[in-house]
Design a protein around this nucleic acid. Structure first.
Length: 572
RNA sequence: GCGCGGGUAGUCUAGUGGUAGGACAACGCCCUUCCGAGGCGUUAGCCCGGGUUCAAAUCCCGGCCCGCGCACCA
């Protein structure tokens, strides 16, 4: 079906033609699941990243790091991602449906099967297992949704392209905790690529095999899932769809009080995420937060809220805000044997009275010889003891009479406890957000009886911020335009100079790519040193002095101010 | 992965076996003009591979890509 029949085709056509996104590997026929960020799309995505940094790094108690996109196998065994791939799948040779073998066997035969190719193969043969459609299954195979690679020459060491940026943060946790001088809570962000070898990439940029994530891992005390700045968003009214599909329009404070959102910290990030998306130009009425159902959550999550945006594809998940509890740190502790806990001091040291068993070493030594040291260690572990203690040392039962130890009442000061932090993770799909911003900004209206297409991007996100347009292509007009464009560029403003085509045609070009302001050099420029600034959304113009142009443009770009605050409205 | 539909310049499109056409866009020159003006000119295309045929954009097979449905989406 030609793309133009699809409802979102008009914008897709524009995005490709004007240089926002292109199909990757196009001259070789393309490959599903990969896109090139063309000049304008790359500019837009970078600016969205910068906006994200402002919200989730600069204005959060967070830092940003950057870790490899290739990970060694151990990481993903610990994280649980590798487990998902050792799952065995069976595919029907007639209808083509693919099932997870262990689930299918459990459901049809009520039988637990080891998730190995051999075991599944045996079960399928033994019970002559058929597909629901009656077809035979092909040979069972491993599902593999991570890209596999080899590190080093020859057989190398097995590695995977990361399926999320988060693991790089968890792995560096000890260093990060030290960096924050072991004081919770703190956040660590990472912006970068991640990879999933999707079975069937679809829907333009919505499901890619290589994609851009911005993730924040916010580490907190398990008993203190609050945020000191919750009040900033507590009164924001949000649309929530809970796991029972019940919709709520409530403030975040109410959502926490009523128990719709599990705790304040999740609610805080729901609020912050919403403000970020609105700042990027997502429409509030096309934004909602949906709670994952119990069977929908990832293996690591205990609660999860997705930000969903209404697009021509329907409601699309663009952010996942998950409470990953201590899952990741505990798993990496277990697999790496590194202690990834944090010492949390109490406000006041607590005095604890307890009984201790104190071994009498001088007596133990001669009596028990080479076993004495071990016995002493075991005795110290005991909370209490009677007249005689029976210990098992190296499989040997040893009776230790009370003369070899004494019971003392001691008072100890406990200054704090070691806890494995919990982590709240807002995880952003930047490609989807970038596309959503474009779709929500895309508009048409009528100017002088003609329809025009205009991209109403937030000013600060526009990839081309200013276009300088000489009214005529005569040398003196072009030279003047070059001078002005040069000055804007020296001040860090993304500026295009465009001298071809009629002025109207050029205005349309920049409307279509969302350039908020056009500077026009006309005859009057040479008389009184003024130029006009044209506003994309209203198409109206004001005259300003050349000497003040840079300052005015900068102020316009960093505010929502109207051009009419800066000069006389100009009507040619 | 399965099923259905599709793939012709940058974009959109005409073309059912016989010399691949148009519109818009882009670029150059002229005009010198404030909202896709006009004139002249230029660039540029049959997704890839095989087959049938004297001859394939067109018919057949396979692949790739795009859209939709199913499955998958940690």
């Amino acid at each position: 079906m030609p793309a133009h029949l699809h409802p979102m085709s008009e914008i897709m056509e524009m995005l490709v033609r004007r240089g926002f996104i292109w199909q990757s590997f196009e001259i070789y026929g393309g490959m599903a699941g990969f896109i090139d960020y063309a000049p304008l799309g790359n500019g837009l995505r970078r600016k969205i990243e910068d906006l994200w940094r402002e919200f989730f790094v600069i204005n959060e108690r967070s830092v940003e790091i950057d870790t490899p996109t290739v990970g060694i196998e151990d990481v993903f065994i610990a994280s649980g991602h590798a487990e998902g791939f050792t799952d065995v799948a069976i595919e029907c040779s007639s209808c083509g449906r693919v099932f997870r073998a262990d689930h299918y066997v459990k459901e049809k035969l009520n039988l637990e099967v080891d998730p190995t190719v051999e075991a599944v193969k045996n079960v399928v043969q033994e019970f002559n297992l058929k597909c629901e459609c009656g077809g035979d299954f092909k040979e069972p195979e491993h599902i593999n949704l991570m890209f596999e690679t080899k590190i080093g020459p020859g057989r190398g060491k097995k590695g995977y392209l990361r399926p999320e940026t988060a693991q790089g943060i968890f792995i560096a946790f000890k260093r990060l905790s030290d960096y924050f001088r072991n004081k919770l809570p703190f956040g660590v962000a990472q912006i970068g690529r991640a990879y999933r070898n999707e079975i069937s990439p679809r829907q333009g940029v919505i499901r890619l095999r290589e994609f851009n994530q911005a993730e924040l891992e916010f580490f907190c005390h398990p008993g203190e899932k609050r945020h000191p700045e919750f009040d900033r968003y507590a009164d924001d009214v949000v649309t929530l769809v809970d796991k029972f599909d019940k919709e709520h329009r409530v403030t975040l404070r109410e959502a926490v009080e009523k128990g719709i959102i599990a705790h304040e910290l999740l609610a805080y990030f729901v609020g912050k995420t919403r403000r970020f998306l609105l700042a990027a130009g997502i429409r509030d009425e096309k934004l909602r937060f949906r709670q994952h159902k119990d069977d929908e959550r990832a293996h690591y999550a205990v609660d999860c809220w997705d930000a969903e945006v209404l697009l021509s594809y329907g409601w699309i998940e663009v952010v996942g805000i998950a409470d990953r509890s201590d899952y990741d740190l505990s798993r990496h502790t277990q697999f790496s044997r590194e202690d990834l806990s944090v010492f949390v001091p109490y406000d006041e040291p607590v005095k604890v009275k307890r009984r201790r068993v104190v071994p009498n070493i001088p007596k133990l030594g001669p009596a028990f010889r080479d076993r004495a040291k071990k016995i002493a260690e075991e005795l110290e572990k005991l909370e209490d003891a009677g007249d005689e203690v029976v210990l098992t040392i190296n499989g040997e039962e040893i009776k230790v009479p009370s003369e070899y130890y004494e019971i003392r009442e001691v008072e100890e000061e406990v200054h704090g406890e070691r806890v494995v932090p919990h982590v709240i993770e807002p995880s952003f799909g930047l490609d989807r957000i970038t596309y959503a911003v474009l779709e929500h900004a895309f508009d048409t209206d009528t100017v002088d009886g003609e329809e025009r297409r205009v991209l109403r991007l937030e000013r600060r996100l526009a990839p081309v911020q200013v276009a300088v347009l000489p009214l005529l292509s005569r040398d003196e007009f072009v030279e003047e335009a070059e001078t002005i464009a040069g000055e804007l560029r020296e001040n860090g403003i993304y500026t295009e100079l465009d001298i071809t085509g009629s002025i109207g045609r050029r205005y349309r070009r920049y409307d279509e790519i969302g350039t908020p302001f056009c500077i026009t050099i006309d005859h009057q420029t040479f008389e009184d040193g003024t130029v006009t600034i044209r506003d994309r959304d209203s198409t109206s113009q004001v005259r300003v002095k050349k000497s003040e142009l840079v300052r005015i443009i900068q102020e316009l770009l960093n505010s929502g101010k109207s051009i009419t605050e800066f000069g006389e409205v100009f009507r040619p």
